[in-house]
Design a protein around this nucleic acid. Structure first.
Length: 299
DNA sequence: AATTCTGCATGAGGTGGGGT
DNA sequence: ACCCCACCTCATGCAGAATT
């Protein structure tokens, strides 16, 4: 939808509509001025913020934050359903960040991703009217389906739940940083710990780790499986800018066991990468490359 | 079998807008 | 002052399909 009067109107109505539902369910009382979602409840002064599914941030006015004890964040989990999280003052301080856009300098921003790390306290549905209801899981009507299909779906849910738990625990252990395929993050983790390197900030372009002398390392990881034994490493970009000094090329087994780790100097990478049609260059970790003088296997 | 290309998901940062 | 959303670009990176 283009940004226009209609979108603005809908955004405003949306925020207030969701706030009304949340306030009703959590027995909160609106206390701010007529257009504010500020409210009061057992946990003190709060404000109700909403974000539709897919939106990455919520903003809180800097002027409002000092008088708040809590933020109620309604985060869309599908088209009509929202999970409500209670973000305490401490958590807000932990999560908040300054926007880069000058236009939004009057607000703090919090990532939806961070909010979702918390435990939701409520689930609501929004029907687009003011009469939305709280979802009661016990009242969900199950369609009659073949037992087999139900079993498969149940099993799929169980597996994804396990996957979630695994990813959460890996994140807690600082093994992974993103929600991508964990192989890439794990490769970085291995390089960091096996070689005593220092993690670069997440947004660092072109390198992942540094050593005490400031030497920059780019980590490329490939996991070989019985279904795909390709040793092609992910794309290299902007090689002419020399954004790293060495590439650490890591091969994992199907079971995520470190099988190979190679140190390859930047000039050798440049020599062996090949162009693609997608704006980056690729490298296959095999053949003559591995016999070059600037290439050393360390694991 | 090896090589090449595409798919898909994600992260980060930025611009713009309108309603009450 | 306060409430929000829509849409954009650029970068990253593994998986796996398609081609040679």
């Amino acid at each position: 939808m283009p940004q226009n009067a209609n979108a603005g109107r809908e955004a405003n109505l949306f925020g207030h509509r969701i706030a009304k539902i949340v306030a009703e369910e959590l027995h909160l009382e609106f206390t701010g001025h007529s257009s504010s979602n500020q409210c009061k409840g057992p946990k003190g002064i709060g404000v109700i913020k909403s974000a539709k599914e897919g939106n990455a941030y919520i903003g809180i006015l800097k002027t409002m934050l000092p008088r708040l004890d809590i933020i109620y964040a309604a985060i869309g989990c599908d088209k009509n359903t929202y999970q409500v999280f209670e973000v305490t003052k401490n958590k807000v301080e932990e999560f908040k960040f300054e926007p880069t856009s000058k236009k939004n300098k009057n607000q703090w921003f919090i990532k939806v991703r961070d909010i979702k790390k918390l435990r939701p306290v409520l689930k609501i549905s929004d029907t687009g009217s003011t009469s939305a209801k709280k979802i009661m899981p016990s009242k969900v009507v199950h369609k009659k389906e073949h037992k087999q299909t139900q079993n498969i779906e149940k099993r799929i849910q169980e597996l994804f739940e396990s996957y979630n738990n695994i990813m959460d625990e890996l994140r807690d252990l600082k093994v992974i940083r993103s929600t991508n395929n964990p192989a890439g993050d794990y490769g970085e983790y291995l390089a960091e710990h096996k070689l005593g390197l220092i993690q670069a900030p997440k947004s660092s372009k072109g390198y992942d780790l540094t050593d005490n002398n400031g030497t920059k390392y780019q980590v490329k990881t490939r996991r070989l499986t019985r279904h795909n034994k390709s040793r092609q490493l992910g794309g290299f970009r902007d090689l002419d800018e020399k954004l790293f000094d060495y590439c650490l090329a890591i091969i994992l087994t199907e079971d995520f066991i470190l099988n190979e780790m190679w140190v390859i100097s930047h000039d050798i990478i440049c020599k062996y990468t090949r162009d693609t049609t997608r704006g980056f260059q690729r490298l296959v970790l095999d053949g003559k490359l591995l016999k070059e003088i600037g290439v050393k296997r360390i694991f």
